[in-house]
Design a binder for these strands. Structure first.
Lengths: 246, 246
DNA sequence: GCCGCGCTCATGTCTACACATATGGGCGAG
DNA sequence: CTCGCCCATATGTGTAGACATGAGCGCGGC
């Protein structure tokens, strides 16, 4: 009997609730509805799904709680700018952090190369051998004194524009934050002793303790960038606030 | 029109919603309702607050979403066991982390004192001078070798049970995670050189780089505990994964 | 004594309605 | 033409009732 095939596609015991929520969430997370987009009014969704307003309201309230949507009376409901605060560490923008401490931020590009990723790169960089990358080495200064040295790789396959950007004025972190949407990130934090070159760059003695922050940033399984930032141990702390609820 | 006087004394711009939620949350976070406690049935709350069941339902649904409550059909709604967090993301449980790396975890209590907080404590500990605390110093071992030394203060005003717990077998972090619900935390991560005592405890040479993790954990404005964990720089990394969505 | 059917009750989901509230924009008065 | 009032509108909140679902428990049959 072929009819049996048609009787039950509801392999999904999903409630109306969950279907609406999944639909909206999908539209937002897939980027179909970009930040700032006004989602349909409650009564439109209510007509579209043939349900009561309360049901739609509950769904949207959930999305607000999840931080995906912002509601403005009379105006409608809008997709919110993705907020990162959820986990341990947001992606820090060094310039902002320094400014927030009342110090003056400085930046200097030490070197910039286009090359292909290869054996010399750490495995954690996530770059496939042979992949085209921009390699940057730069220095972050606070009140004119170096406090961090950064080595960075940017995958050209994911961010081709990076090849034509001059990073002599703009720190790569700030540029990427503003130009490339990301979906996931991974931090690795460790402490190590400054090597000869790092000691020279950071103006500390060789062997001085440094905070090392390695970060990989992803967009949908692809590695966008790998950064290794080495901070003077005596000049920088990472601070993270968080709560289970937000 | 006298009727206007009767409508609402709007001294409180709080909605019924928020009042109920605040009540329940308060009972849970204050510890009045301990983990496992069955909260009143929806129809009881509905009678108690003189509102519709839907209103109570919405509140409880919110608490479920916040991870404070678990609901079981027919049985009722229960205060949930404070979640032992996904280790890397939020508050790490060292024993789990070590086990996840396939190494054997060991723990040793170095000292334990009941005393009052005082001037010698770092200001960041958040403990008020004169407040009763448990002071612990302990060692975390991986494969028999020390990799972290921990100094901890636990506020007896918030966690009186801690006075009678013998921490010689259980690490205070694990015990607290399982027994005390928390609402917020703050991490401060830095790199510093091992001092004489730390070098001895960690079996490294004096001046070796160490990763220092200071953590304050709060329950509703009160500091529950302050911990300072010093890791061997050559043996431990903090890793954090995160994404905008969770 | 043991198994299973069915009752009961608490939660899960949804509807239809009602009134409150804030605000953008239109309209009228000056 | 400009300013200010008012109203339409979209969300915010709450009510009263309905049916669905699933798990505990007792009763009755074997």
């Amino acid at each position: 009997m072929t009819v049996s095939a048609k009787t039950v596609p509801p392999a999904e015991p999903t409630t109306l609730h969950q279907r609406i929520r999944a639909d909206l969430e999908g539209k937002i997370l897939s980027g179909e509805w970009k930040p700032g987009h006004r989602i349909p009014f409650e009564h439109e969704l209510m007509a579209q799904y043939g349900c009561a307003r309360m049901t739609v309201n509950k769904v949207i309230a959930g999305l607000v709680a999840a931080g995906l949507i912002e509601r403005r009376r009379r105006a409608g409901s809008f997709v919110i700018q993705p907020r990162i605060q959820s986990a341990v560490l947001e992606i820090p923008d060094l310039a902002n952090e320094i400014a927030a401490r009342g110090e003056t931020y400085g930046y200097r590009l030490l070197s910039r190369r286009l090359r292909v990723a290869g054996g010399a790169d750490p495995a954690e960089s996530g770059m496939a051998a042979g992949e085209g990358v921009v390699e940057l080495r730069c220095l972050h200064l606070s009140n004119g004194r170096p406090f961090a040295v950064e080595d960075r790789l940017i995958a050209l396959a994911v961010v081709p524009e990076a090849a034509s950007v001059d990073f002599s004025q703009t720190a790569p972190g700030s540029w990427l934050l503003g130009h490339v949407p990301w979906t996931a990130a991974e931090h690795r934090i460790s402490a190590l002793a400054a090597g000869a070159r790092e000691a020279r760059d950071l103006d500390v003695s060789k062997g001085a303790p440094c905070l090392c922050l390695e970060r990989r940033t992803f967009r949908a399984e692809q590695t966008i960038t790998y950064a290794r930032q080495l901070f003077r141990g005596d000049a920088y702390n990472l601070v993270a606030h968080f709560s289970p609820k937000g």
